[in-house]
């Protein structure tokens, strides 16, 4: 039971932050989907199945925080390139500030091992 609750909490946390991890990866310029998915997949403990990132990318497009362009690839089918929109940049900036506060508070509480 405890393991199940922990797993659910972690999976909800992942779901909440992944979106902003994608935005952060695009901070320095555009990247195509597979490149993004690999970068997220390589980060330890962030992604369990790479395939579920594609629906997430779709949601970001519909939310208007990223823009995409299809371009021919030197090999294989065309690639979809993602880049931040001004809305995406603003969302990322806001999240970074909130996340730092959140992380520091949680670290402080968990670090003591005492919740008051």
């Amino acid at each position: 039971m405890a393991a199940k609750i922990r797993e659910m909490a972690i999976s909800q946390l992942r779901r909440g932050v992944l979106e902003f991890c994608v935005l952060a990866l695009l901070r320095d310029g555009e990247r195509y989907s597979y490149d993004l998915v690999r970068a997220l997949g390589d980060a330890d403990g962030l992604v369990t199945t790479e395939g579920t990132l594609y629906p997430l990318l779709g949601r970001l497009r519909r939310e208007g925080v990223v823009d995409t362009t299809w371009r021919e690839s030197p090999s294989g089918p065309p690639r979809r390139y993602y880049r931040l929109t001004p809305d995406g940049q603003a969302a990322l900036g806001g999240f970074v500030i909130e996340w730092t506060r959140f992380r520091d508070s949680v670290d402080a509480l968990l670090g003591n091992g005492v919740l008051r």
Binding site: T49, E50, G51, T52, Y54, P55, G58, R62
Partner: peptide, 19 residues
């Protein structure tokens, strides 16, 4: 295996329909 089950990908796409 790393990509995950097709059904899982579709399930991840499905809650988005609520939008």
């Amino acid at each position: 295996d790393k990509l995950g089950e097709p059904e899982g990908i579709i399930a991840a796409e499905t809650p988005d329909l609520d939008e």
